[in-house]
């Protein structure tokens, strides 16, 4: 459609290259060489509106993944009033589980996504029983430092096991690109974004439409009333931690297909999740979904406008701005 359009004159060569980097992997820095030479520009994407569409589409796909892991953080926050500073590390471990399944067992996405979910579910439950349960009614310092310490521990154990090097999964795990009227979307991004979107909606339905969900929410609402109804809060809270971590794990495994990772990536994800939850309102999964998509788009646009290194700066600044202007988030509280 846009093949005949002249390239937008404002777009410098350097900027083009940056855009290309961002687009090539949503957020990471891979494949720039390959695609920089190739398809994207030849198909006319240097034209402004298409680039914009491409950026927004990429942002939405990544944003769906943000929504998926932020929903877990939001659930824990809304239910127990605990902020999990290690939530980003859960995502990061999901990435390394995918890495191990691919390198050691030669598995594909169908194997590593469930594997990450299962492993992280277990980790979440263990963390709940070993740590969270004991600090949940403790002083503020214990609440914050426990998960903060856990984040460090997980990050540096991974660092110790896998080194600080950036890893990538092989290109051909989910091959292909889809062309939507000139907007090119990589299959890895499409699969990750689509799956994350479906899973986030699924999590919402699980909470609002199933007996298990209403038991979880009952505990969130009023612990002692839930106990009177014969619900064991401990089990429900452990389950919530398991689910929250599993969501983070799948999210990690999904983006690992196109996002280079090292043990340090967790911090960025944790902060992104904070912003999403603050924007969406804590305890609200639909809020997390909308906010996640929004943050994804904002991030992509700012990577384009200010350069990739500033994409997180814009998001973190947005966080502080939200706290100043609208601390209750865009939507209300709990589901």
């Amino acid at each position: 459609m846009s093949k005949r359009l002249a390239p937008a004159p404002t777009l410098s060569r350097k900027r083009e290259r940056e855009v290309c980097k961002v687009l090539a992997c949503g957020n990471g820095f891979r494949r720039s060489s390959e695609q920089g030479k190739g398809g994207i520009f030849r198909s006319g994407l240097a034209a402004y509106p298409v680039i914009l569409l491409q950026i927004i589409a990429g942002g939405l796909l990544l944003g769906a993944v943000y929504a998926l892991f932020s929903a877990g953080l939001s659930l824990i926050w809304g239910m127990m009033n605990v902020i999990n500073f290690a939530h980003g590390e859960f995502v990061m471990i999901g990435m390394y589980v995918a890495f191990l399944v691919v390198t050691a067992l030669n598995g594909g996405p169908v194997a590593f996504a469930p594997a990450a979910a299962a492993f992280l579910f277990l980790l979440g439950v263990v963390v709940y029983f070993g740590l969270i349960r004991h600090i949940i009614r403790g002083p503020m310092i214990a609440q914050i430092l426990s998960t903060f310490g856990l984040a460090l521990l997980l990050r540096y154990v991974t660092f110790w096991l896998f080194s600080a090097n950036f890893r990538t999964l092989p290109d051909n795990l989910i091959p292909g690109t889809v062309d939507l009227g000139g907007v090119l979307l990589g299959m890895p991004q499409l699969v990750a974004g689509g799956a994350a979107f479906v899973l986030t909606i699924g999590a919402h339905l699980l909470l609002t439409r199933t007996a298990l969900g209403s038991r979880l929410l009952a505990v969130a609402e009023d612990r002692s009333a839930a106990m009177l109804m014969g619900i064991r809060p401990d089990r429900m809270q452990a389950l919530a931690w398991g689910l929250s971590a599993a969501g983070a794990g799948i999210a990690g495994a999904l983006i690992a297909t196109f996002y280079p990772f090292s043990p340090g990536v967790g911090e960025t994800f944790a902060l992104t999740a904070f912003v999403v939850v603050a924007l969406g309102g804590f305890g609200s999964i639909p809020g997390a979904l909308v906010a996640g998509l929004l943050i994804g788009v904002i991030q992509s646009l700012s990577a384009y406008a200010f350069g990739p290194v500033y994409k997180d700066v814009v998001v973190y600044a947005l966080f502080v701005a939200i706290l100043w202007v609208r601390p209750q988030g865009l939507m209300g509280k709990l589901v």
């Binding site: 914050i144 997180d312 700066v313 502080v320 706290l323 100043w324």
Partner: peptide, 24 residues
């Protein structure tokens, strides 16, 4: 802004601002 809110928000804002400034 954060001292109007629960303690968690303050902790989260500190790490966000620290990262922001570090990147800049």
């Amino acid at each position: 802004p954060t001292f109007r809110l629960q303690g968690h928000y303050f902790s989260m804002a500190t790490i966000a601002v620290a990262e922001l400034v570090r990147i800049v």
